[in-house]
Lab assay of single mutants.
Amino acid sequence: MGFKLLSKLLVYLTASIMAIASPLAFSVDSSGEYPTVSEIPVGEVRLYQIADGVWSHIATQSFDGAVYPSNGLIVRDGDELLLIDTAWGAKNTAALLAEIEKQIGLPVTRAVSTHFHDDRVGGVDVLRAAGVATYASPSTRRLAEVEGNEIPTHSLEGLSSSGDAVRFGPVELFYPGAAHSTDNLIVYVPSASVLYGGCAIYELSRTSAGNVADADLAEWPTSIERIQQHYPEAQFVIPGHGLPGGLDLLKHTTNVVKAHTNRSVVE
């Protein structure tokens, strides 16, 4: 069995187990497998329904001669939608809004960016022009300005110390501490036991640490421990890039980060 097929099978099995364990909360999309990078042309966006009122959005972007996937989250909030992270750029984010209108038909009224990198804030200006209120932590807003990236308009308070959590509509926002970046936030959907790890969490097929220019490698494993301790009931975990899975993604990420750190020390 090929690795790609095995990865998709694991996603399907995880979703099936969740649907059985929580039949009222989960209505997993039966329309197909989780979209992969090879299936999404740059400039297009796919939506994948995880649970009743919960979707991931998947886009792709060219970077350094390669094409990478990027995940975000959409959560229903009454007759409105909360968006977590842009679709990595203005063109993708405009396509995301169009796809949401086509498939869901509810307005996106608020959006949260989970850290300051372009795959999370690139497209904020498109959201703002569409009347979406954009939010991020003060740290993310400051770092985005320093980096020359787009800056969300509103500040999220109460997320300055490791372990801080605040309720934001249908989700809980959690600051686990520094990891992929010093400002990275985690998003949890309690009604569906869905954990969105953003770039602080890796997919299972990833074996290298990737972009760690703004990471705190020493603190990252401790931050992941905080996530595990705060959300032990999480059933569906979405990484910032690639295929979702279960809580095993947290341990896998820790292993990859520690291996990278150990290699760096040896070198």
Rank of each mutant, 00 (worst) to 15 (best):
F3D: 05
F3H: 05
K4C: 06
L5T: 05
K8W: 06
L9D: 06
L9K: 06
V11Y: 10
L13P: 07
L13I: 07
T14V: 11
M18W: 08
M18V: 07
M18H: 05
A19C: 07
A21T: 13
A21I: 08
P23S: 09
L24V: 11
A25Y: 09
S27C: 11
S31P: 10
E33Y: 06
P35K: 08
V37K: 12
S38T: 09
S38L: 14
S38W: 13
S38E: 07
I40F: 07
P41N: 07
P41E: 12
V42T: 10
G43A: 13
V45A: 11
A51Q: 15
D52C: 04
G53K: 08
V54R: 02
W55A: 01
S56T: 13
I58G: 03
I58S: 11
I58L: 11
A59P: 02
G65D: 07
S70R: 02
G72R: 01
G72A: 01
I74Y: 03
I74H: 00
V75C: 04
R76Y: 11
G78M: 09
G78E: 08
D79I: 09
D79R: 12
D79A: 15
L82P: 04
I84L: 13
I84A: 09
D85Y: 00
D85N: 04
T86N: 01
T86R: 01
A87C: 00
W88M: 01
K91C: 09
A95N: 13
L96E: 01
Q103K: 12
G105R: 11
R110D: 06
A111N: 15
V112M: 10
S113T: 11
H115S: 00
H115K: 00
H117P: 00
D119F: 00
D119H: 01
R120F: 01
R120P: 02
R120G: 12
R120C: 04
G122L: 15
V124E: 04
D125Y: 11
V126S: 12
V126M: 09
V126N: 06
L127S: 01
R128W: 06
R128L: 05
R128P: 03
A129E: 08
G131F: 15
A133E: 10
A133P: 14
Y135E: 01
S139Y: 11
S139P: 12
E145W: 10
I151K: 06
I151A: 10
I151S: 08
P152S: 10
P152C: 02
P152N: 03
E157K: 06
G158P: 14
S160H: 10
S161K: 12
S162R: 13
G163L: 08
V166W: 09
V166N: 08
R167H: 05
F168V: 11
P170S: 08
V171R: 02
F174L: 13
Y175K: 02
Y175E: 00
P176W: 00
P176G: 04
G177F: 01
A178S: 08
A179V: 04
A179R: 02
H180G: 00
S181H: 00
D183G: 02
D183N: 04
N184A: 01
I186K: 00
L195T: 00
L195W: 00
Y196W: 05
Y196K: 00
I201W: 02
I201G: 01
Y202L: 14
Y202V: 08
Y202S: 11
E203T: 15
L204D: 14
R206M: 06
T207K: 11
T207P: 07
S208C: 05
A209F: 10
G210V: 05
G210T: 05
D216V: 10
D216Y: 08
P221Y: 08
E225P: 02
I227H: 02
Q228P: 04
Q229E: 13
H230I: 14
H230N: 06
P232K: 10
Q235V: 06
F236P: 03
P239C: 01
H241E: 00
G242E: 03
L243Y: 08
L243F: 13
P244L: 05
G245K: 02
G246M: 07
L249S: 03
L250H: 02
K251F: 05
K251N: 05
H252E: 04
N255D: 13
V257H: 04
N262Q: 05
R263Q: 15
R263H: 07
V266M: 06
E267V: 10
